[in-house]
């Protein structure tokens, strides 16, 4: 169940990252509201995931998987090209998460 909580938290964190960038220092009302609402939902699910994961482990997986998600969404929906660096970064992040999982930390 904690993995499901983490994945939901990751999805809303992706929304936070995109909306925060568009909110222009919280001056744009619509994007500010989207940022805050997404952030609240992401935080609630992160806190549920952190009941099981240690903070360092759970938090790192949360932000890094959100970063991976942003790039993948950009490639799928915004037609942004996946270059060598992005694919390498995604592979490194995912190996790190698998490593944590195999080492028993996650």
């Amino acid at each position: 169940m904690h993995w499901l909580y983490l994945i939901i938290a990751v999805l809303f964190e992706i929304s936070v990252a995109i909306a925060a960038g568009k909110s222009e220092g919280f001056k744009n009302v619509k994007w500010t509201v989207i940022t805050l609402v997404s952030g609240v939902i992401a935080t609630i699910f992160l806190s549920l995931a952190l009941l099981t994961f240690d903070v360092g482990v759970g938090y790192s997986m949360w932000t890094s998987l959100a970063g991976v998600g942003i790039v993948i969404l950009g490639a799928v929906f915004l037609n942004q090209r996946l270059n060598f660096g992005k694919v390498t970064g995604i592979a490194i992040v995912i190996s790190g998460v698998i490593g944590l999982r195999l080492s028993g930390a996650a």
Partner: peptide, 23 residues
Amino acid sequence: YQSFWLAVIIAGVICLKLADSAK
């Protein structure tokens, strides 16, 4: 072990983001 894999994840994020920003 945990520190090692956390460092791997952070390195991955940096790689990912720098590649993203170059464009």
